[in-house]
Amino acid sequence: MSFQTFLQHLVNGISLGSLYALLAIGYTMVYGILRLINFAHGDIFMLATYIAFYSITTFLLPWWAAFLIAIILTALLGILLERAAYRPLRNSPRISIMISAIGASFLIENLAIVFFGGRPKAFPIAPIFSKIVRIGDVSISIVTIIIPIITVIALVILNFIVNKTKTGMAMRAVSKDYDAAKLMGININHIISFTFGTGSALAAIGGIMWALKYPQLIPLMGVMPGLKFFIAAVIGGIGNIKGAVLGGFILGLGEIAIVASSPALSGYRDAFAFILLIIILLVKPTGLLGQNSAEKV
């Protein structure tokens, strides 16, 4: 493999890894605070792309306005999802809330088929995003470069919110101990809504960039990627934001490496994610950066 080809693959891998990382964070944040795998997260991701699609094609908005609206509406949908499907079951056994998550996922997918139609739609790409840049002998589409940049910006903002703001402090407190957090005067419901809003906004950012990279929308487009985002979160250690980023990049770079090493293996691209998951669960079930759940009493 020539150095150019290697660079090309590397850039692609980083780009794909960024998307996985952004989406894995949504899984990990919700898990951290509710101990729930939000199976509908991949469908939230799908909804974001359709909102952007209709904003551009039906409402004829400029791309940036459409993206902004998609991010805001998706955040609100995430909050709505928690209110409707998870909050009423807050004190039920964990299995009930998990079943509810699976149900919410199927509901969103099927409503999407009814309202958006089952036929694929082509995502309209503004000319700015379809440019190709050449760096030396490497030619890269501008989207591939933008994705990691936006991801880094989003991660810096998220890191600031979680570690430096009062709300972030409350989020970390709630994820550790509900009752003790209540005793501080923290309104648990607000913090959980905020968590879903943030996770869903990141899913929207990831979804829009996904659509720019793979511009074909179908109502079930969140299913397979959704599983991979989840796997990325588990590899890194679910509940840990840094772990989700790490898991995302490992998965993205790994997939591209498989495809690059031999075209014959490219059909096994999806299998790679699952094999990696099995290995992690066998070797280090808490994930790479996951903490052992044993606690000092």
Partner: peptide, 23 residues
């Protein structure tokens, strides 16, 4: 002050104190 202390073990001492002043 709850039984068993219930401090937020994942937060620093100062963050714990600031959470007391949350409202």
């Amino acid at each position: 002050v709850p039984e068993g202390r219930r401090v937020f073990s994942n937060l620093t001492v100062e963050e714990n104190l600031f959470l007391g002043a949350y409202l």
